Simulated scan of single mutants.
Amino acid sequence: MPRTRRPVVPGWFDQDAADFRLLGTQCRDCGAVFFPREDAFCRNPACGGSALDEVPLSRRGTVWSYTDGRYRPPAPYVSDPDTAWQPYTLVAVELAAERMVVLGQAAPGVTVADLAVGAEVELVPGVLNEDAEHVWTTWRWRPVEAS
């Protein structure tokens, strides 16, 4: 039986879009952009707006910070306690156009040795977990190769 692809958090990205991007929201009154998305009111304390539009966020940004996760995180993170823990790399990426920092895991195979503050990275689709019925999709960050 084929498994269903499901986003880990519905509405945060379109897993089937040809131009894979995170989806935020933007206040019509003040222009502030939010991720994770906000659908009820503007989180800008200087604005009382409540009209928000969905906006795709930049696909590229620069490394603001990074670290490696060498511990098994608590629930709701899914991991098999009978399997050896594999460290993963976390990347905080600054999106200049949106004036925000977005956290995410690095793409498979990317380690802290592959990253540097200020280096350019791009958003790529990823898989967080798989079970008998679902493939749980997410986003990842991957260094942009120098041209």
Rank of each mutant, 00 (worst) to 15 (best):
M1L: 10
P2Q: 12
R3S: 12
T4Y: 13
T4C: 04
R5E: 14
R6T: 14
P7V: 02
P7C: 09
V9A: 11
F13Y: 15
D14T: 11
D14I: 07
A18Y: 00
A18T: 12
D19P: 09
F20D: 01
R21I: 01
L22Q: 02
T25C: 09
C30T: 05
G31N: 11
A32M: 13
A32E: 13
V33F: 06
F34R: 06
F35A: 11
E38Q: 15
D39L: 12
D39P: 01
D39H: 06
A40M: 06
A40H: 04
C42M: 02
C42T: 06
N44W: 10
P45M: 04
P45I: 07
A46S: 13
C47Q: 07
G49P: 09
S50Q: 13
A51Q: 15
V55P: 02
L57R: 00
S58W: 04
S58R: 04
R59S: 11
R59D: 06
R60V: 09
G61A: 03
G61D: 00
G61H: 03
W64I: 00
W64K: 05
T67E: 07
T67R: 07
T67Y: 03
D68K: 13
R70F: 00
R70I: 05
Y71W: 15
P73M: 09
P74Y: 01
A75P: 15
P76R: 08
Y77A: 14
Y77I: 14
S79M: 10
S79N: 14
D80E: 08
P81A: 08
T83C: 10
A84R: 14
W85T: 00
W85F: 12
Q86G: 00
Q86L: 12
P87S: 06
P87R: 01
Y88K: 07
L90I: 14
L90F: 12
L90Y: 08
L90D: 00
L90G: 04
V91A: 05
A92I: 06
E94S: 11
L95V: 06
A96D: 15
A96W: 03
A96T: 15
A96Y: 03
R99P: 06
M100Y: 08
V101G: 08
V101R: 13
V102H: 06
G104H: 02
G104E: 02
Q105K: 13
Q105H: 14
P108L: 11
G109I: 03
V110D: 02
T111W: 05
T111M: 04
A113G: 03
D114R: 03
D114V: 09
L115Y: 07
A116H: 02
V117I: 15
G118Y: 02
G118N: 03
G118I: 04
A119S: 12
E120I: 09
E120G: 04
V121D: 01
V121A: 01
E122V: 08
G126W: 04
V127L: 11
L128P: 01
N129H: 15
E130R: 14
E130Q: 14
D131K: 05
D131F: 04
E133P: 00
H134T: 10
H134Y: 09
V135F: 00
W136A: 03
R140I: 07
R140M: 14
W141A: 06
R142M: 10
S147A: 15
